[in-house]
Computed example of a mutant assay.
Amino acid sequence: DFYHLNKHYNCLLQMGGSDQWGNITTGTELVRRMNVGNDDKSKAYALTTPLITKADGSKFGKSEGGNVWLDADKTSVYKFYQFWLNATDVDAEKYIKIFTFLDKETIEKLIAEHNEAPHLRALQKRLAEEITVMVHSAADLENAIAASNAFFSPSMDELKKLDEKTFLEVFEGVPQAEISMADLNAGLDMIAALAAKTNFLASNSDARRELKQNSISLNKEKVGEDKIITKEDLINNQFLLLQKGKKNYYVIKVK
């Protein structure tokens, strides 16, 4: 590759992580050997930087799982922001020095602030803010923060403000089911919504038990067996959000 780029595009420098040192220097040697006697064409250089790794020792790169792309079509702004926000304390301290242009004094102050109250995640928040604005924009950052707040908010007010794309990004990975608008127009009871129509719960009896235990929420509000779901309950005229306990979510899309 290096030889081809050197020959056709006059590429003189190949850069990479320190783990690629052997491959890159082999490339420079090939360029020099293939251009013996041509001093101008025989010039080829290598530059490597320390390999960036995560706290668990895995590489920070596209070949590893759970990493991000700069292109919003490959990694949405919301997921991009969440990636940095969820960095470990060790990684956040390293990344903020590598990936931002904050000065040394500011970074040291942030680290000290974080060490005093790690649960507030001041380091991760600033890291996520700086990189999201740099790669995307300040407006995109605001939207990502709004989406994050909407997910953790006890009310539906913020979730209702999200567009369809952002809503689905927030609940990516959450089990989903589709039902028809006709089902809703006929009056959808909670037993059907939890079991027969969605399989969120295994059976009608499971649905009744959970409802009696007051562990089911519809759009973040506790509901009982007598609740009938109508169009008025729809989020953005197409979604219903079911929840069992605090962490088990289920999205119903109405078509």
Rank of each mutant, 00 (worst) to 15 (best):
L70E: 02
K222L: 13
A128I: 04
N237Q: 12
F99D: 00
V174A: 06
L47N: 01
K97F: 04
Q14N: 09
E169T: 09
L211A: 13
P154H: 15
T132C: 04
G173N: 13
F99H: 05
H4Y: 10
I216H: 10
D183A: 15
F151V: 15
A182S: 08
A193N: 03
M34P: 02
S180W: 03
K253T: 14
G16I: 07
Y81D: 00
N67G: 06
I96H: 05
I96N: 01
Y95M: 08
I24A: 03
Y249V: 10
A144Q: 03
L188D: 01
T25E: 01
D233F: 11
N115W: 06
G61V: 10
M134G: 02
Q82M: 11
N248E: 15
Q124M: 08
E130Y: 12
T28S: 13
A195G: 05
N35S: 08
L120C: 08
E158S: 10
V223A: 13
K62A: 09
N143Q: 09
N219P: 05
E172Q: 15
G22T: 12
Y78G: 04
T166F: 04
D163W: 11
N115A: 14
D1R: 13
E221S: 09
Q82L: 08
H8Q: 07
M34V: 02
L188K: 04
I131W: 01
E210A: 10
T230M: 08
A150I: 10
A177C: 07
N38R: 12
H114N: 12
T198F: 06
A192M: 06
N115Y: 07
D189S: 09
E172A: 14
S63M: 06
N35V: 03
L241H: 06
N6M: 07
L184N: 00
S148A: 11
Q238G: 13
E116S: 15
E178A: 10
A202T: 08
A193V: 09
S215K: 08
A207L: 15
A150V: 09
L168W: 03
S58A: 14
K74Q: 12
K109H: 06
A112M: 10
M190R: 03
G224Y: 15
A207T: 14
I179Q: 01
L12D: 00
N149Y: 07
A195F: 08
D39Q: 09
L211H: 11
L13A: 03
A55D: 09
V170F: 09
F152R: 13
D140S: 15
R209I: 11
S153P: 03
Y250E: 00
L123D: 00
A138Y: 02
L184A: 01
